[in-house]
Structure formats: C-alpha cells, structure tokens
Amino acid sequence: MALSEWVRESRKYILGTIILVLVLAFIPFIIGFDQYLLLILSTAAIFAVFVVAWNIIGGYAGQLDLGAFAYIALGGIVAAQLLVVYNITPWIGMFVGAGVSAVLAAAIGYPTFRFGIKEVWYALLTAALVVILNNIFHLPEVLGSLDHYLPPANGWYYLKFPVYENIYWFILAMLAIVVFINLWVSKSKVGYYLRAIREDELAAEALGIDVRKYKLEALVLYAAILGFMGYVYIVIAGTYSYHTFDSPHSIAIAIMGIIGGLGSIAGALTSAITLKVVEEYLRASIGATIPGIHLLIYGLLLIIIGIFKPDGLAGIYESLKKRRTSGRKKISGGGNP
C-alpha cells in the first residue's frame, strides 16, 4: 500500500493517535514528575504497546496467542545480555532482540500453521511455549535461579535513567509507532486478508488467500515488536531472570485485547491503559488487605464480556454510536480500527 494512500485513508486515526500521545506525554508536567505515578504510567503505556501488538495476531488474525512474554522476555534478555556481557548499546541490542524473537516465532509458527493448529490448541501451544522457555532459562547453564541486573550506568546510550519520564516518553513514541503499524496493517491488503482468515479460514483459502503465509507474517510481526520492547520492559522491571517468561502476564495481555474488542486499536489502547492504571491503583489502595483484587476484577470483566458482549469495549462503543446515528446513513472506512 502506498504511503500517500495510507495517510489519506487513515488521516483521522493518525491525527487522533498523535493527539492522544501528546496528551499522555504532557501528564508528567501535571503530576509534577511524581516518580511513583510515572512508573505506573510507564507500565500502563508499555502494556498498551503489548496489547496493540497482540491485536495483530489476536485481533486481526484471530489466533488466541497466550505467549506474549515468550517474545518479550527473549528479546529483552538478548538485548540485556548484549549490554551486560559485551557492552553493546540497547539501540542495537533491541533490534537483535526483535530479530531473535521473530526467528523464534517463525520457527514455532511455520510447523504450527503448516499442520493447521488453531483455536484451543494454538492457545495451549503458545501458553506452553512460555513455560518451556521459563524452564530452559532456569537451567544453571543459561540464567540460573538468580536475578540479573542491568549495569548501574544511566543515559540515552543505555536507554536507562534515574528518573522515569524519559523512558515514559520513549514508550509513548513506540506506542505511536505500533499504533501506526496496526493502522497500516488494518487498512492494507494484509489486514483484509487477516480478517477474512479470522472469520473463516476455509472460505478465505478458497478466495486464493495463502492462509499459512499470512498467519505467519502476523505472528512474526507481533513477535518482533514484542522482542524489540523487551529491553524496555526489563528497564522498568529493574531485573531480569527466568521469571521474565511470565505466564500470567502473557494471559493478561490476551485478556486486555479481548476486553478491548478484537481487531480494535482504540479498544486495545483503552482497555490496556485503563485496566493497568486501575490495577495499580487497586494494588496500592486495597491490595495489601485483599491481594489480587485487580485480577479478580479482570476475571469478572472477562466473564461478563464473554457472555454478554463478545465484541468487547469496541462493540459497546459501536452499539452506542449506532443508537445515536440510527436512521442516518453510516459512512466508514475499511475495517474497524
């Protein structure tokens, strides 16, 4: 798809994204650079990046991937180790990490899609992948049982700072880029094909769509974005170890994607940022007396949405909009960005 065509088609959304990111970027000034709040915001923003990336494989291609942290941790640990062992800047390391995650995704995805594994089996396979990597990195020959730390040095060379605002702004810039990637996918031939695959694989294939190829492309793109952001995640987390291959958080990313509404970028953004901020708020306020209360709420939300509103937040928004404009003719671009 030509760039000019893409800009014309998505102008409204590009503008919206830029405004949203600018508003988010301005928040530190309002909260007086409160470091604790900035940590929460950074966490929410990086999860938003993860969920928007997940939207490519989960929302467009319709594959319930539960393995996000396989790629996040792998890419992040590769970049971190390059820095720790060889003093290679993460500006290079993150690209290497993205590449390694993409290669892993291709190696897993090729046979998986070749043999037609989907639905529950795909979900299980990706969930198992996180556990496998967790176990492998736990071996003493790999990372062992210890927590590993990034070098104490700070600065843009290390993409690591004594204060959170820089990394927060960096994540926001990445968020804008990942949203643009999504928009591009959504509006291009790939997006149409992925949605068709999600809706009906057999019918899609009969229309000449190479189902395996497009699913693999979606998976690799998703994994590369996650692998790239892995180092930033480690910077926020402070340490890395085999625990970075985190099953519950992998599932949480899929959950936020579903609550947002499959294939909806705005839904993914809203659900990730809201849920993560609410989560941190609840953890800070009543989390000490009732641990896990935020996750309990996730669970209930998921059940309610699954039963009553399978289209998620985006579906709720759509039906509200429809009620308001009923009677008027609806004009819309492609898909449901």
């Binding site: 499959l262 669970g299 949405i305």
Partner: peptide, 20 residues
C-alpha cells in the same frame, strides 16, 4: 475464543479468591 476468554476469566476469579 469466547469460551477460552470466559473460562480464563473464571480461573482468574478462582485464583484471586484463593489469593485474597
């Protein structure tokens, strides 16, 4: 996908009731 979502949600509820 919806069934997985709902039962994952159920699991989350159980886990966090236990945690609480």
């Amino acid at each position: 996908l919806i069934q997985i979502a709902v039962t994952v949600g159920l699991g989350y509820v159980f886990q966090n009731i236990a945690l609480a």
